[in-house]
Amino acid sequence: MVTKLHLGVIALLLFLAGCQSNTASSSLYEQIGGQQTIDRIVDNFIRQIEYDPHIIEFFLESDIDRFRSKLSEHICAFSGGPCVYSGDSMQDVHAGMHITESDFNRTVDLLIDAMTEAGLSHPQQNKMLALFVPMRRQMIYR
């Protein structure tokens, strides 16, 4: 039995080791298909927000065109693309919005749906989310 479990552990490690290899060469930006895909993600994301009766509340006074172009630029810059983010800091953008933990996670779910719709694979979605994790503390309870 212990041998069966050991086999399981080894299989798991091999699986993880196998996944490690083919990532370093190109940026996430290139892997997902560049600006075209990012624009699709952002469009899908905005549509998801429009259909969410709770999250839409946070955007009622937003300039959606500006949000579209700045978010697109932000994702491009953070995923290793040829852009420089020219928007406001995350603190400034989210100041006074009183975004809670649940609001934040709900919006993450919408972003995941938007990425799925844009054809990103599960690992690509995780890498994208990992890029934005450090920004959470600048967005919630402000």
Binding site: L16, N126, K127
Partner: peptide, 10 residues
């Protein structure tokens, strides 16, 4: 850990 192992969460 998001995306830690070749994009898979650990």
């Amino acid at each position: 850990h998001l995306g830690a192992a070749g994009g898979y969460n650990l």
